[in-house]
Amino acid sequence: MSVPALSVRNAEKRFGAIHALRDVSMDAWRGEVTALLGDNGAGKSTLVKCISGVHRLDEGEILLDGRPAHLNSPAAARGAGIETVYQDLALFDNLTPAQNFYCGREIGFPAWLPRPLRFLDKRAMNREAAAVIDRLQVRLPKFDAPVAMMSGGQRQAIAVARATVFARNVVMLDEPTAALGLRESRKVLDLIVKLKAEGNAVILITHNMEHVVELADRAVVLRQGTKVGELKPSAQNRQDLVAMIVGAEA
């Protein structure tokens, strides 16, 4: 446990005139939840998208288990064991939960054919997906129906469960409870606890301070693209965290 599962070193990212990330460094450790906090436009989502391979860093580097990683596409990041639950979930409404789980990483055969021309091993994918859903105790109305007709909480649970299937190093969740009611939020928080217990480094973006205090082992605060602080959240320093996020001097 001496090396963090993920380290970001001196990250810089610009979008034209906007300086989205300025010299940001952070670590995430296995078996821990690292909260990534900040106001809207602070650079949280940009940082997540750089780690998940959607954007590329202009400068700086990303280390996985201490070794430099080249995450220049979402496929590369997923290949490196980094899973992301995006704010928009990135679920396919027209596919079933199992199809969603394996989308882009279908189990196919024979191996000597180019990937798009391989035959789908539907039985294996259904079996694996059902096992994960069972293990995480996600309750779904129907396993073989497209996710279009499922509720917000069920869809969120599917997106989180998908991340757990392949995560070997890091799971990032971008505001996983933003669109959910109280009860459905609770279920997703339980899932996050399970992810952590299974030894993943979890990075959680949220605006909900209660969730941060309850779940996070460490909190990293961004403001206007710069890292302004890092501390262990607790009920006592909650106010300090909020002050850091909005930029008010304590």
């Binding site: 998940s52 959607v54 596409s73 979402p74 496929a75 997923r78 290949g79 992301t84 995006y86 928009d88 979930l89 990135a90 679920l91 396919f92 409404d93 027209n94 596919l95 199809q99 989308c103 882009g104 990483r105 279908e106 196919g108 990937r115 798009p116 021309l117 391989r118 035959f119 789908l120």
Partner: peptide, 28 residues
């Protein structure tokens, strides 16, 4: 039966998500 077909459905269902899931959207 084939991966290519699954990808066409994914790209049609949500092109942004398809990219995020590592599907070669342009090729599809």
């Amino acid at each position: 039966a084939m991966v290519w077909g699954r990808w066409t459905y994914a790209v049609g269902g949500d092109p942004v998500a398809a990219r995020e899931m590592g599907i070669p959207v342009r090729g599809v």
